[in-house]
Each structure stands twice: as structure tokens, then as C-alpha cells.
Write a protein that binds this DNA or RNA. Structure first.
Lengths: 226, 226
DNA sequence: ACCTGAACACCGTTCAAGT
DNA sequence: ACCTGAACACCGTTCAAGT
């Protein structure tokens, strides 16, 4: 029997590295950054790794797991404060949540997918741990911190996900912001509260609103006995 | 030229009602209730209406619009308090948001889709209007009510959407609750805050948590100057 | 155990051609 | 204007058969 060798069809091509979970995730991350989540498909990943789509299922259970792994990889770049030494836990928490929101704003369709996931990678756990620790440092009672952390993270994610809907529609399409349109047009006879608040509803920059909302969430979590 | 008549292939079959947006939405709603959102596809809708999928695009721009229309149809059943006469606006607001969450809990994958939408149908506008009016009645300053209403609605939607992930996995699959697993296993050396709060993180029923969170959100919105 | 090609069972949307 | 069939351009996942 002849020794096993690379098949002729592969000879003189760059050696094909062995498949691995990390390798698949690395390719997924690159495609996400360069072309967006929509292009991260099992077929595309397989193609880039010079194999068939079914081979990926050895390393990842399904597409949701790919998305979760990609989120965790992105979170590695999120600067984490040290809750034990920070002098301004409230500012550090706001900054952390703002940074997390900003990161997801760069990948709104990933944010959308993450809402349907329960991310559980090591970097997401670190984000949870730091959020809870900062609430502790703020003097929030433990049960409130435990029940409150995911309101904070969920709001950040949902805010970025909302952005996805905007990004998908083109400017020429007047439906892109159906709710703003609808609020603007809502007849005062039928929707008196909307009519009364029309100016306030459209006031403020997205940054101002985000900052206010995060503050309101922290205040609510800190000030509401469980 | 002979008069136009129903083609032979349709004779003796029940008369085919003319297509309409309302008709499409009604079928979508029935399929949603009986079989879930996953079965509400353009091809299925077309099949039930005895036509081809392309015909639906005369009445609805895309699948997102179908989902939005279905949500609005469901909201017709949501009991709305009258903000002008209610004596306990805080209780009424909590009840309204709890009822909205409960309604979406029945259709978690719709909730997931709604997060990516900006619903703008008449019944959703009514929900917004009532929420703002109840915040007014609570004495919340107008700008805070204007900025705060969507935190409340978004939380309700996101909470129901989270449920979708659970529903999709079967019991035998231990991954169904990856985050709870991960939190339970998180080593205390690396995640000290999680370890410290382990008991509180798993405490409380979903109902208790929902009630507390809604209260915390209302408190935060009411008590944080914009 | 790992890897594969091919198949299964679908999707949403567009388009040219009718009526 | 409304409606259509067929096509376009894909999907995720499974499975039997390899190595």
C-alpha cells in the first residue's frame, strides 16, 4: 500500500490548515467586519475553508452558535474597568454600557441576532461580572444588582438592534422610519397624548437619549427595593 | 367575443374572494395562532389564498410589513385603560405593560421579529398614546414621558423575545439555557461578582422579576430629570 | 472521529407577460 | 391596476458513505 499523501488535486496549493472551531469563528469574524452578518452563511464559511457546509457541524451546533461566538470575539476588544479600584463606579458603568452599545452599533444585524440569543461566552460573562461589580460598588443591594444587570445589557443590545432596521432601508424609501412618520402624522383627536408631546418626542440627539436612558435605568435599578 | 367568465378550472369551486391587504393579514393571523410565525411564509399565504406569492406584493411590501400588520391585529385585543379617569395610573401602567408582555409571550417569535421592526399600526400607536398618558397622569414631566415610553415597551418586547430561544430548543438539549448554565458554572476566581451573587441571580419567579423590573423602569423614568 | 458531497426541504423577491 | 407562473438566487441542516 502506498503511503497516504495529499491528493494530486491539492498538491502545489497552499496547505489546507485543519478545521477547528477557532478557525471557523475567525473567518466568520472577518466576513462580518468586511461584508456584514448577512454574508456569514454556512456555505460561505465552508467555501472559505475549502470544505463543504456539513463539515462545520463538527465544531458548531448551528448558526446561532456561530453568532454567539462572533459576539464573544468582538467583546474581547471592549475595555473593561476594574470595579475594585475605580473611583467613579457610576461613570464607569455608564461608559461601559455606552461602549458596549457603540460596539454593537457597528454591527446592528448582529445585535438583532444577539437579542434572540443568550450569549454565554467568556467575554460576555466578563461583561456581566463587571456590570454587577460596578452596581455593587455603587451601593446597589445584591438582589437588585442581580435582577438589574440584564435590563441594562438588554437595553444596550435592543438599541443597537433598532438601528439595523434603519440601515436596511435605503434613503429613497420613505418607510424607513415608519414609527417616526406615524407619530408625526398621528391625528390629535385619536392620539391626544402623542399630540401633546409631539415636540418632546422628536427632541434630543440619539447620544443624549442614550445617556439619559442609561442613567434612568441605573437609577431605577438602584432605587427600587426588590 | 364571448363574455368573460370564470375559467372552467374554477367553476364549481367556492368563489375566490378578491385579494386584499386585510384578507392577507387575516390568513396570516390564523396561521400564526394555529401553527406559529415560522409557518407564515409568502408561499403559504399565497397558497391559502389560491394565488402565487408574487400577487401578495400588491398589498404588502415585504415580510416585515406582514409581521407588523399581524402584531397590530393582535393588539386589538389588548384592554386599554382610560388614562383620564383611572384612579391608579401606576397600577394601570404596570397592568398594561404586563398584559402586553403576556400577549407577546404567546407569540415569542413574533416578539423577536417586532424588536427588529418599528411597529407603527393604529393599535400600536394607541398603546404608545396610552403609555404616555399614564406617565403624564403619574406626574412624570413631559420630556421624560416622551423619552421613556419606548424603554418600557422595548423591555416588554425583549423579554418575550428571549422566551423564543427557550421555546425553540427541546428539553433534552442541555444548551437551551446556555447563560444560566454558564452563570452556574462560572469559576469564582475569574468571575467573582457572579460568584458572590449566585443565589440572587437564580432567585425569584419570572413574574416577580417582571413586576420588579417594570417598577424599576417606571421609577427610573419618573425620577431621572432629562 | 472527522470529513464529505449530495440531497432535502425549503425561503423572499423580482420580472416579464398576461388580463 | 391587478394578477400570475416561473425563475433567480439563495438558505440551514441532515444523512449515508467515506477515510
Amino acid at each position: 500500500m502506498p503511503p497516504r499523501r495529499t491528493p494530486a488535486s491539492r498538491r502545489d496549493r497552499p496547505a489546507k490548515p485543519p478545521l477547528s472551531r477557532a478557525g471557523v469563528v475567525a473567518v466568520a469574524l472577518r466576513i462580518l467586519r468586511e461584508e456584514g452578518l448577512e454574508k456569514v452563511t454556512m456555505r460561505r464559511l465552508a467555501g472559505e475553508l475549502d470544505t463543504g457546509p456539513s463539515s462545520l457541524y463538527v465544531y458548531l451546533q448551528n448558526m446561532a452558535e456561530v453568532h454567539g461566538a462572533v459576539l464573544d470575539a468582538l467583546l474581547a476588544d471592549l475595555p473593561m474597568p476594574d470595579p475594585a479600584t475605580t473611583k467613579d463606579p457610576r461613570g464607569a458603568l455608564t461608559d461601559l454600557l455606552t461602549a458596549y452599545t457603540g460596539l454593537l452599533f457597528g454591527y446592528p444585524s448582529l445585535a438583532r441576532s444577539v437579542l434572540a440569543l443568550w450569549p454565554s461566552g467568556p467575554n460576555y460573562l466578563r461583561l456581566i461580572d463587571t456590570t454587577i461589580a460596578l452596581l455593587d460598588a455603587l451601593g446597589v443591594p445584591p438582589r437588585q444588582a442581580s435582577w438589574g444587570f440584564d435590563v441594562l445589557l438588554q437595553y444596550a443590545t435592543a438599541t443597537a438592534a433598532e438601528q439595523a432596521t434603519r440601515d436596511e432601508s435605503d434613503d429613497s424609501d420613505r418607510e424607513w422610519d415608519g414609527l417616526t412618520e406615524a407619530i408625526g402624522r398621528a391625528p390629535g383627536r385619536e392620539y391626544p397624548a402623542i399630540a401633546r408631546h409631539r415636540d418632546d418626542l422628536f427632541s434630543g440627539t440619539p447620544e443624549q437619549k442614550l445617556r439619559w436612558t442609561l442613567t434612568a435605568l441605573i437609577n431605577g435599578v438602584a432605587g427600587t427595593p426588590a
